[in-house]
Nucleic acid binder design. Structure first.
Lengths: 329, 329
DNA sequence: ATGAAAGCGCTAACAG
DNA sequence: CTGTTAGCGCTTTCAT
């Protein structure tokens, strides 16, 4: 900055102001500064700016996996909402593991983000403490925690799957199975399974057709394997709800391989409204949790919370929408 | 840090050393420091550390879209390879736009990353200059640029698609179409289309069955629309190569909707070896560009380059593997 | 509209 | 194994 200042013939302070588009710098000076910087190959150093101003411009975000279109949509929504605020996302992956999440949260907080957005409402005690004491807005997403740490933008995974059960029951199914969610790592998957069991019991139906699959991410292959097991062991199953559209598509593919009609013989439903659900044949009945909106609302909350630090914690409850398609009768 | 030092009864310097696991701090002291910090709720401040030590621990990474399993795999490979080096990814999205890429690169360089990994080999002049002058290892990926800025981990998109043409021709197809890649934003898609044209001409075949789709990301829906157009306008097409597995799956779905046999009437091939290619029925012939390996090799290059700053630029050329499956005869 | 002085919270360098 | 001193490159604050 001193070098630039010398070339332009001003003080470093003026260069600093010019780079921040401070109104008190004359347009002429600003242009001269930018030109000199470009000529010298000077690139502004955020690390120093950050230390002195105590503003990093980071929002920390944790998601279970980078390879998941739903979470990617949430990150996009966040990103779009934060950019006009001059905030940038610092992203980390938890691998669906709350212990990795704890380590990740600590690592992220060391970078002094101005807010933090986490996926899910279940954390280790230490992670909860770190978040609560960080002195920045905390937003839990994709869930409705019983004891929120700060703000919440989420929905009830259990209730959403309950609606899917209602949908299938209304269409005459009684022997309904659930695929996925038995790994205690994927808490949202587990919530969905519990929602399935509760809803089935509410209808007085047998809620024991549960196919556990391995550790998350539960993907297409696992869905196909689970469906194969189900067709072998409980061939009279009328409908299957899968923990996500990806496993639902795997299940559908397995049926196609075996020549089993969907929805003729078995109905299949998913979760997430991934692009594949709208594309495949038959297209998949699913639940759309509005992942992009989750990110967008979180960005709004951050804007509000940073503008008025004392404000109350918000809890925005979204209602996933059931999309009825050809894979269920 | 001073507060922690006071509680433990040592100097801030010792606390600093304890937090960096400096070997010269006794185990007892280290434990006392960690405990005191935990009790006080002290969280190490990387922003100050970064400024003084001139080491941010960041590796900047640009990808076209967060919502793409191939690029996500590359980021995973990078992430896994960088973690043991104590490096963290600072990720940004270019939206398949080299002007957004330029702005993004500048923004990322301000954070003083220790290396930068970019997707693709086509950049604005200013972006090239910024990268070349950054004084850190630069790695271009997913492409083989004619004039690399620094290191390269990539493959020839054109050549890979050429091999797919060979594969189809060897199986008797002559009327082959290409879907995608006509938007000049997606340079890899364009390279694939050019590779298609070159290979067709090499075989003395008509290379005009090109279906342009909109701006990237070209996804399932666009693939289905393109296939619909193709089936309407050129119904004697024997085989279709799609710019990615996602559009290939869209194309396959359109065929299924119309009752057109795949591969009986039309063969379909994709690119990327996404999970869907192995799952769908019929499963899709495709090219696997080893996206995870790209990230892993880039991480290795970074390790080497940071260890020996003067070393030569590496160019690691990968060979995408043709996976022959049921969607092509 | 511009400048001077001080300092953000840590660590390099050196000393012992 | 531990401590002292100085300073990383900016920006806050105050002055003009």
């Amino acid at each position: 900055m001193q070098d630039v200042a010398r070339v332009v013939g001003v003080s470093p302070m003026t260069v600093s102001r010019a780079f921040r588009n401070d109104a008190s710098v004359s347009e002429k000076t600003r242009e001269a500064v930018v030109k000199a910087a470009e000529d010298l190959g000077y690139v502004f150093d955020s690390t120093a700016s950050t230390l002195r101003s105590q503003r990093t411009g980071f929002v920390a975000v944790t998601i279970p996996s980078i390879n998941n279109a739903n979470f990617a949509d949430t990150v996009r929504g966040l990103s779009e909402g934060l950019k006009p605020q001059g905030l940038q996302i610092l992203l980390g992956y938890t691998d669906y593991d709350i212990h990795k999440e704890e380590a990740l949260i600590e690592q992220l907080l060391r970078r002094r983000p101005e807010a933090i957005v986490v996926t899910g409402g279940k954390h280790t005690d230490r992670a909860r403490r770190l978040l609560a004491n960080a002195g920045i807005p905390v937003i839990e997403t994709w869930d409705l925690p019983d004891h929120p740490i700060g703000h919440v933008v989420g929905f009830s995974n259990a209730q959403a799957v309950g609606e899917m059960v209602d949908h299938l029951v209304a269409r005459g199914a009684t022997r309904i199975a659930f695929i996925g969610g038995d790994a205690d790592r994927d808490t949202r998957g587990t919530d969905r399974r519990l929602g399935f069991i509760a809803a089935m019991q509410r209808h007085g139906l047998d809620a024991t057709r549960l196919v556990a699959v391995g550790a998350p991410p539960i993907s297409m292959r696992e869905g196909a394997l689970a469906m194969a097991g189900l067709l072998d062991s409980l061939p009279d199953t009328e409908a299957v709800i899968c923990v996500s559209d990806l496993s639902a598509f795997g299940a559908l593919s397995e049926c196609q391989r075996r020549g089993i009609a969907v929805p003729g013989q078995v109905s299949i439903a998913g979760f997430g409204d991934y692009e594949i659900a709208a594309t495949c044949v038959p297209d998949l009945t699913t639940l759309n949790p509005f992942p992009h909106d989750i990110g967008a609302k979180a960005a709004q909350i951050i804007a509000t919370a940073l503008a008025s630090p004392g404000c109350d914690a918000q809890c925005i409850k979204l209602a996933p929408k059931l999309i009825s398609r050809a894979s269920t009768r």
